[in-house]
Amino acid sequence: MMESLRLLAHDLALSGGLPASFQYGFVTNAVLCALLVGPVLGSIGTMVVTKRLAFFSQAVGQAALTGVAIGILIGEPPTAPYASLFGFCVLFALALNFTKNRTRMSSDTLIGVFLSISMAIGASLLVWVAGQVNVHLVDKVLFGSILTVNDLDIAVLAVMSGLVGVVGLARYNRMLLASFNPQLAKVRGVQVAFLDYVFVVMVTVITVASVKIIGAMLVEALFLIPAAAARIWSGSMRGFFAITVAISTVSTLVGILAPMEFDLPIPSGGAIILCASLFFLAATVSRLFTRHAS
């Protein structure tokens, strides 16, 4: 299926229906990834921001680094260590959520501790195993590399996006209520603790599936920045959701395509987040001026 899509894009590019760069298969791959990553990370981002889980998603994103290192260590292919990635990150997120529910520690302290431990393990292992494989692997894991995305990566991303979309949208309102007042939601019949786990796993699997494109260091920024910018511009929950998805999708597309078009030697992850940051900057500045005017 992927092959026929690429052929179609190739033909369209030759006949002038698409920009010339679509002659290359990896450009079609990249655009497909962007159209998956942008909307999914954006829409989850609205909930990450509402639930104030920005720091949590950062911890999960950087746990991916450790996941990759473990994968290489146990002999998975360095470019697709998905078993270790999913295994470690889901375990990490579940353990973090479990501990958060059972201690009186404030969650930022706890997340900080978990993040540091996982980073220490990840950094140590990665430097150790980097000797066995290509050293450039490290910056690909950290900052994303759209050029190396293959059909397996796209399939993983598509399956996870579908899963997260179906599971998440059906529970959006219940999660929203629980984020305001957990007790109120419980009385309403919402299984708050269970939903928390569902959400944590959702964030984790989509983070892992996006690491190839955006990189472990920056994937959480795409949860955060589009939603943060959209919050400034929107007056309703529906607008918030729509604007977030729009910013996130545009940023991902531009961030992936611009370096290819202009032959810039920058990683896709960095470009995507920089583009999203421009939206955030614009939103902040426009708010400053409207405040001033009123």
Partner: peptide, 12 residues
């Protein structure tokens, strides 16, 4: 409930 927190700036 006795207390009800809304995140500041949340469009709702």
């Amino acid at each position: 409930p006795q207390s009800f927190q809304v995140a500041p700036g949340l469009p709702m």
